[in-house]
């Protein structure tokens, strides 16, 4: 295969991995961020954690794979992206570390203070990564202050208005997504709270999404690919339609379909940005000459070819057994499940 074709394929695999990570771990992060608001009692909170208990770990690996694939297919992007976004990335990772051990540790000791501590960690370890992923990606869409000497920015710089808007968008997407998943897996008052939170948060998401789409016009050049190929506007259109479907299914009290629509919203929103970015991966603000693109940052042709074969074989296998796990653990939880020795 020609090198430039390979590079383009890899660019979209890279985008797809991030999209799937946001779609899967997004609802875990959302439920974690909703924990103090929807979990009124210890058993409510345990129910919320056990709703994602069997799945969050496998979901998180999409992040590891996105990172690994960036390293393999676009080494220069991996090097510049993570050393430039040093502090936000480490904050995300520390957040995810605390979230992960909290699930396992929380219910192992019968003490209110112990459990409150881990609940706080789950909350912080979910909301901080949700926002920071948005901040980081919005800054990438906007372009990073990079020149021949590398990156010149700081955490404070990244917290610019468009960056913060990206953070708000990701948070709202994940909150809605989490509330819907919670409704799928619970019944009774917790289910009702999930549904009504989903409805209220949806309105907030709609507002943030509209502002984001408008701000993107002014702050980034993501629309230029769309203007030159108007057919591509189908992608943001799908995003808007699926967002409307979320509300439609919420009103019909169908949590599963609303959640599936929310999955499509997240994936198409990610692809709206990824398509707009193409072929840039890390655009430079002062001068496009310093931008990292799919062609100037990629691995060798041989590596791209071999990795493509591996990914085409194994990612469908992964999706297969993850679907099986989702199939096993999409039923409604009961208090009986919380009595299990292994439950979180």
């Amino acid at each position: 295969m020609e090198l430039d074709v390979l590079q383009s394929i890899w660019f979209f695999i890279w985008g797809l991995l991030w999209a799937v990570f946001f779609m899967t771990d997004g609802f875990d992060l959302g439920i974690g961020a909703l924990l103090p608001f929807l979990g009124k009692s210890d058993s409510d909170r345990r129910m919320m954690i056990n709703a994602i208990g069997p799945l969050w770990d496998g979901n998180e690996v999409w992040l590891i794979t996105a990172g690994g694939v960036t390293f393999a297919a676009f080494p220069k992007v991996y090097a510049v992206m993570f050393s430039s976004l040093y502090t936000p990335l480490l904050l995300i990772l520390f957040g995810l570390i605390f979230r992960g051990v909290s699930f396992e540790f929380r219910s192992k000791v019968e003490s209110i203070a112990w459990r409150n501590f881990w609940d706080a960690c789950i909350f912080a370890g979910s909301i901080a990564p949700a926002i920071l992923f948005g901040v980081a990606f919005a800054n990438i869409f906007q372009g990073l202050p990079m020149d021949q000497n590398g990156y010149h920015g700081s955490l404070i710089y990244l917290l610019n208005p468009y960056g913060l808007l990206g953070g708000a968008l990701f948070l709202m997407l994940f909150l809605v997504h989490g509330a819907l998943w919670l409704s799928i897996r619970t019944s009774g008052p917790l289910h009702d709270r999930g549904m009504s939170a989903g409805g209220n948060l949806w309105l907030g998401l709609l507002v943030v999404a509209v502002v984001f789409l408008i701000a993107t016009w002014f702050s980034t050049s993501l629309y230029s690919n769309y203007l030159s190929h108007p057919i591509l506007f189908a992608v943001p259109l799908i995003c808007v339609l699926s967002l409307v479907c979320v509300k439609f299914f919420l009103m019909k009290k169908d949590a599963l379909k609303a959640w599936l629509a929310s999955c499509l919203t997240i994936v198409s929103a990610t692809f709206f940005c990824i398509i707009g970015l193409f072929p840039n991966m890390l655009p430079s603000i002062p001068d496009a000459a310093y931008s990292l693109t799919a062609s100037n940052a990629s691995a060798s042709q041989l590596t791209l070819t071999i990795m493509l074969v591996i990914v085409l074989i194994f990612i469908p296998v992964v999706i297969g057994y993850q679907l099986w796990a989702y199939h096993l653990f999409s039923d409604k939880l009961s208090t009986h499940d919380l009595a299990e020795d292994e439950a979180y």
């Binding site: 590891i64 690994g68 393999a72 080494p75 090097a79 057994y321 796990a325």
Partner: peptide
């Protein structure tokens, strides 16, 4: 990255996914 990165990416897609997904199933 061309070599070392590939091995890490292969690790994630062939093994780490399997381990992390199935541990949830086991528990």
């Amino acid at each position: 990255g061309d070599i070392f990165g590939s091995l890490l990416a292969i690790e994630a897609s062939t093994s780490f996914f399997l381990e992390s997904t199935l541990i949830g199933v086991w528990v």
